[in-house]
Lab assay of single mutants.
Amino acid sequence: VRQEELAAARAALHDLMTGKRVATVQKDGRRVEFTATSVSDLKKYIAELEVQTGM
């Protein structure tokens, strides 16, 4: 499950970095929206997932 969450989070980051205004991911069973202003929060979430998956 964590691998899927990590892939979704990375895709969301890619979307935001390429101009999409809002990206949505499932985080702990709930839907979370990230915007360009919350990229740093999304990067932290990705880092947490990488630690949890041993990457």
Rank of each mutant, 00 (worst) to 15 (best):
L13S: 00
A11H: 08
V51A: 15
M17S: 06
E33S: 06
L6D: 01
A47K: 13
T18G: 09
Q3L: 13
V51W: 14
I46T: 00
Q26R: 07
R30L: 12
L13G: 00
T18K: 10
Q52F: 08
D28G: 09
T37W: 04
K43S: 05
S40T: 10
A9T: 02
E48N: 06
L16F: 02
E33M: 06
H14P: 00
A11Y: 02
A36T: 11
R30T: 11
T18Q: 11
T35R: 04
H14G: 06
A7G: 06
Q52L: 15
V39K: 04
R21E: 14
V22N: 07
A36D: 12
R31L: 15
L6I: 06
D15N: 07
T37P: 04
G54T: 06
A11T: 09
A9E: 01
K20E: 08
R2G: 12
T24H: 12
G54Y: 02
T18M: 13
Y45E: 02
S38P: 01
V1Q: 13
A11M: 09
A12L: 04
T18C: 12
T35L: 07
K20W: 01
T35S: 08
Q52P: 06
K43D: 04
E5N: 07
S40Y: 03
D15M: 07
E33G: 02
K44A: 15
L13I: 02
V51E: 15
V25E: 03
V51D: 12
A47M: 09
V1E: 13
G29R: 03
E5P: 06
V22L: 08
T53S: 14
E33V: 08
V1D: 15
V51S: 14
K44W: 07
V1H: 14
Q3H: 13
K20N: 08
R2K: 15
A11K: 14
E48W: 15
T35I: 05
M17Q: 11
R10C: 08
R10Q: 07
Q52A: 12
Q3Y: 14
G29P: 01
E33I: 09
M55D: 13
D41S: 07
R10I: 12
E4L: 12
F34A: 04
I46D: 01
D15A: 08
R10P: 00
A7M: 11
A8P: 01
V25P: 02
D15S: 07
V22A: 09
A8C: 14
T35M: 06
D41C: 08
V25L: 10
V25Q: 02
V39N: 01
L6Y: 04
L13H: 02
A23M: 01
L6T: 02
A47Y: 11
G19Y: 00
E50M: 08
S38K: 05
Q26I: 15
A36E: 14
V32M: 11
L49P: 00
L13Y: 06
A7P: 03
R21A: 15
D28A: 05
E4W: 13
T37L: 11
K20R: 07
A11D: 07
A9I: 04
R21C: 11
L42M: 02
E5K: 07
R2L: 15
V51R: 13
K27D: 03
T53D: 11
A47R: 10
E33F: 05
K27E: 04
A9V: 04
K27G: 04
G54W: 02
A7Q: 12
K27R: 13
A9S: 03
D41P: 01
D28R: 03
M17D: 05
A12M: 03
V1N: 15
K27W: 03
E4V: 11
L13W: 04
G19E: 03
E4Q: 11
K27H: 07
D15H: 05
T24W: 05
K44Y: 06
Q3T: 13
L13Q: 01
A47G: 07
A36L: 12
A7C: 10
L49G: 01
A23H: 02
A9W: 02
V1T: 14
E4C: 10
D15Q: 09
L42N: 00
A36N: 10
H14I: 10
L49Q: 01
H14Y: 07
A11N: 09
V1A: 13
H14S: 08
R31S: 14
I46Q: 00
G19K: 03
M55V: 15
A23K: 02
A8L: 12
V32P: 04
R10H: 07
R30Q: 13
R10D: 02
I46R: 00
S40C: 11
L49R: 01
A8G: 07
G29L: 02
D28Y: 01
L49Y: 01
E33R: 07
S38T: 14
V51P: 04
E50N: 04
Q26P: 07
K27C: 09
T24D: 06
F34L: 07
D15P: 00
H14W: 06
L16T: 00
E4S: 12
A12D: 01
S38D: 15
T35K: 04
R2D: 10
V22H: 08
L49A: 02
T24M: 08
E33D: 12
E5M: 10
V32S: 04
M17G: 04
E48R: 06
L13C: 05
E4K: 11
R2V: 14
E5Y: 07
L49D: 00
M17A: 07
L16R: 00
I46W: 01
K27Q: 10
K20I: 10
Q26W: 09
V1F: 12
V39C: 07
R21W: 05
V25Y: 00
D41F: 05
Y45D: 01
V32F: 09
L42D: 01
T18P: 01
Q26D: 10
S40P: 10
Q52E: 15
M55W: 02
R2T: 11
D28H: 04
D28P: 03
K43Y: 09
V25F: 02
T53F: 15
A7L: 12
V1M: 13
A8I: 11
G19F: 00
T37V: 10
A8Y: 06
T37C: 11
K43N: 06
F34D: 03
F34Y: 13
E5F: 06
E5Q: 11
V25G: 03
V39T: 05
T24L: 07
K20C: 08
L49F: 02
V22I: 10
K43M: 13
R21P: 15
V39P: 01
L42V: 02
K44V: 09
V39Q: 05
R10W: 04
L6M: 05
K43F: 08
V32K: 06
G19T: 03
V32W: 07
R31N: 14
A47S: 10
D28N: 09
L13F: 05
G54D: 13
K20Y: 03
E48A: 08
R30W: 06
E5H: 09
T24S: 12
S38C: 10
E33T: 07
R2E: 12
Q3G: 11
Q3F: 14
Q26A: 08
L42K: 00
I46L: 05
K44R: 13
R31K: 15
A7K: 12
D15F: 04
E33P: 03
A36I: 14
I46E: 01
A11R: 14
E50G: 04
V32H: 07
M55I: 14
E4Y: 09
K43W: 05
L13T: 00
F34H: 04
A7T: 09
G29N: 05
T35G: 06
T24Y: 09
A9G: 02
S40R: 08
G19D: 05
Q3A: 12
T24G: 07
K20A: 15
L49M: 06
A12N: 01
A47W: 10
I46C: 02
K43L: 14
M55K: 13
L49K: 01
A12Y: 01
A11S: 10
S38L: 08
V22D: 04
E4G: 12
T24C: 13
A8Q: 13
A47I: 08
V39W: 04
A11E: 10
T37I: 09
S40K: 10
V1P: 13
